[in-house]
Design a protein around this nucleic acid. Structure first.
Length: 698
DNA sequence: AACCCTCGAGGTCA
DNA sequence: CTCGAGGGTT
């Protein structure tokens, strides 16, 4: 031993301190590696903590000497006020699920079809365990960890950098001489079962509530504002993907993972290359058998096409890649009793039956209720009050009644009598022919609908008013302070109302101030959110945007909708011509605007707020954005399906036949009648090379 | 088949 | 907030 490590911190001079910090950074990094890569720690946790403490003590004396790769960055940061937002430069996607082996076979078949391969052409896939934790994106710039973010909605996540730094499987600095300028590593943060058990033991002894399962424990730990708490939880990490990367990632997926491992990130050692559906299924079975002994929770395995060029060609459908699929394990099941079936009334008046179950633990959480969806569902499974039923958590999350154990049915149990009267307001509840749901016709006289509509209006995607939620809305309705959406704004505008608020339980001065501020902050609202807030049937986030973009201003839209309600043919066809708006939507809008009280409520709300106009989408980056394309003839560089997917990605619409609305016709080899038609109509044609060049594919 | 809307359950943190 | 199911629309 050199002795430096024995010198008291107080006795170090600056040069010795710098040297000691360098030594500690290296030693701690080495122990981190042993811990996470070999799973063979060379020292005890206590000794490791002592090293970390010594490092921190020296830094406290010589703040100027803190190294960019200092281990103390793992734990040092002061508690944050709240989590910042991180926009993912490349969206974080979800995977399609396969529950059955047949779906795995179909997955492979579809890949081969899409790539124009024969049914027995070799395709290599990397199979890996699917960890049940929370996904996370780590951004390294020039080899240094700069941000860690949760998945969030896939586009925007929360900034959990300080917490991520406390995870020993995640290096502060990539172990390479030649770090990439940008590398965003994605993977799963999770808690091992042993740590989970110890954590809950500790919490139980401190009389704190215990976590329901390791995944929730990991999620709770990562969402701590105080990163020292996160640090004490010993989370783990496996890498399995990337987002932004400069230079781009090329080659194979397994090669990418090997490079990550070489740079000090942890990669699951159970990953394996497979070459056929049989091999994939065998892998699934093998991992399933080893599941209990892994020491951490998994909910299935994931298969990914290994060749990154093929991944790119396969692309995406919706939010999920075509080149990957999650093959889940069967859901865990349990048996319990249906104590009651209650009816809930939603915003649109839908009557939804919910089974009240004798509480039972399924897959780590206590389940007490399960939706029964509708009348048909209950009848098909013949679920009766008093029945013993098999319950599972679909996708290991959502409780679901699978089947009735009919031998255990009590004598005299009657089939469920689905109400034809709304249990909340007594109005008739009707089921239209061809529909599965029965709906209350009470509209605004139905308290359940009024409440649900108000909750919808203040919701995150509509007015987004902080401090008004499922708890407060019913309370304010009860107090007579809320009836229609416009009343929300009168809460802030009318002093008498604010005073009435102060008389209610749980409304202190501060809370009222906050609410008023939150409401005032939302007095200006974009048209699409305003439309969404009205709660018109079928008009969700996407359709509200379509309408807002097309009509631009509230007044234009309102006039057009009134004309539609008055059966004005021109207004109707203008509306129906918007791509994505079909007959049912037209009817729903007309119906809404035929009700005088709806228009009153709309105008009332509009008088309280400023509705911002929405610009119709600009041309966008691509020459094809907003254009209509037709492909004809056989393409050589890619299949028709790929070309279509690419064009749509660029904002184009792909049509099947040439018309005067077509902007471009892409001619493959042996193009026939469509080429002729294009010439007749004077539509611009592109050959394959030209199309690829314009699409930005070289 | 892809996409959208609606509804539901259950969890954690402030 | 996240996940998932079911049903509707295009």
């Amino acid at each position: 031993m050199s002795g430096a490590e024995d010198v008291a911190v107080d006795a170090l001079d600056e040069a010795a301190a710098a040297a000691e910090l360098a030594r500690l950074a290296a030693v701690i990094a080495r122990h981190d590696r042993l811990y996470h890569q070999e799973d063979a720690p060379a020292i005890s946790d206590a000794d490791y903590d002592a090293l970390v403490r010594r490092n921190r003590a020296i830094e406290a004396r010589f703040p100027a000497l803190v190294r960019p790769d200092s281990p103390s960055l793992r734990v040092g940061a002061a508690p944050a006020e709240a989590f910042g937002k991180v926009v993912h430069p490349v969206p974080m996607l979800s995977l399609d699920n396969a529950m059955e082996e047949a779906a795995v076979v179909e997955f492979l078949a579809r890949i081969r079809r899409f790539l124009n391969l024969t049914a027995d052409a070799p395709v290599e896939l990397l199979a890996e365990p699917k960890i049940d934790g929370l996904s996370c994106a780590l951004r390294y710039e020039a080899g240094l960890l700069v941000t860690g973010a949760t998945r969030g909605d896939g586009t925007t996540g929360e900034d959990i950098t300080a917490n991520v730094r406390t995870i020993r499987d995640i290096p502060q600095r990539l172990d390479t001489d030649d770090p990439p300028p940008v590398l965003e590593v994605r993977g799963e943060i999770f808690m091992e079962l042993e740590e989970f058990r110890k954590l809950n033991e500790r919490r139980a002894s401190e009389e704190l509530p215990v976590f329901a399962n390791p995944r929730n424990a990991a999620a709770g730990s990562v969402r701590q504002l105080d990163s020292t708490i996160t640090a004490s939880r010993r989370l783990r990490f496996f890498a399995y993907a990337w987002g932004a990367a400069e230079p781009p990632i090329t080659g194979s997926y397994h090669g990418f993972l090997e490079r990550l491992a070489a740079m000090g990130l942890r990669v699951n050692p159970l990953n394996r290359i497979c070459r056929s559906a049989e091999e994939l299924i065998a892998y699934h079975a093998e991992i399933g058998e080893r599941r209990a002994g892994l020491g951490y929770d998994i909910d299935g395995v994931v298969y990914k096409v290994d060749d990154l060029r093929l991944q790119q060609r396969l692309g995406f459908v919706g939010r999920a890649p075509r080149w990957a699929i999650a093959h889940k394990f069967p859901a865990q099941q349990a048996v319990t009793v249906v104590n009651d079936i209650v009816i809930q009334v939603g915003r649109t008046g839908a009557l939804t039956p919910v089974a009240q179950l004798e509480p039972i633990t399924v897959g780590g959480v206590v389940v007490g209720r399960a939706t029964l969806h509708n009348q048909d569902y209950i009848e098909e499974k013949d679920i009766r009050v008093g029945d013993t039923v098999v319950v599972q958590r679909a996708g290991d999350v959502i409780p679901q009644v699978v089947e009735v154990v009919t031998d255990r049915r009590p004598k005299g149990a009657m089939p469920f009598d689905f109400p034809e009267i709304c249990p909340e307001c007594g109005s008739h509840a009707v089921r239209l022919p061809g529909e599965a749901v029965r709906r209350c016709t009470g509209g605004l006289i139905c308290p359940a609908q009024v409440e649900a509509r108000l909750e919808h209006a203040v919701g995150r995607d509509a007015f987004d008013i902080e401090g008004l939620g499922k708890k407060q809305v019913p309370q304010l309705i009860e107090a007579g302070l809320l009836k229609a959406p416009a009343d929300i704004f009168r809460l802030a505008g009318d002093p008498a109302k604010a005073e009435a608020l102060a008389g209610l339980e749980g409304w202190g001065k501060k809370k009222i101030e906050n609410l008023v501020a939150a409401i005032e902050a939302r007095r200006t609202i974009p048209l699409d959110r305003f439309i969404l807030a009205l709660g018109i049937r079928f008009i969700g986030e996407a359709n509200a945007k379509l309408l807002a973009r097309h009509y631009g201003t509230l007044e234009t839209w309102r006039q057009a909708m009134l004309a539609v309600a008055g059966d004005d043919e021109d207004a109707r066809s203008e509306l129906a011509d918007i791509d994505g708006i079909g007959p049912k939507l037209v009817d729903a809008l007309a119906e809404f605007f035929r009700e005088p009280h709806n228009i009153e409520a709309l105008d009332d709300l509009a008088s309280e707020v400023t509705v911002e106009a929405v610009a119709s989408p600009a041309g966008g980056g691509s020459p094809f954005s907003g254009k209509t394309l037709v492909f004809t003839g056989s393409l050589e560089q890619m299949t028709r399906a790929e070309a279509k997917a690419l064009a749509e990605q660029l904002g184009a619409k792909v049509a099947g036949s040439v018309s005067k609305k077509t902007d471009y016709v892409v001619l493959g080899a042996d193009a026939g009648s469509k080429a002729k038609k294009a010439a007749e109509l004077g539509v611009e044609t592109l050959d394959e090379a030209k199309w690829l060049a314009m699409a930005g594919v070289s």
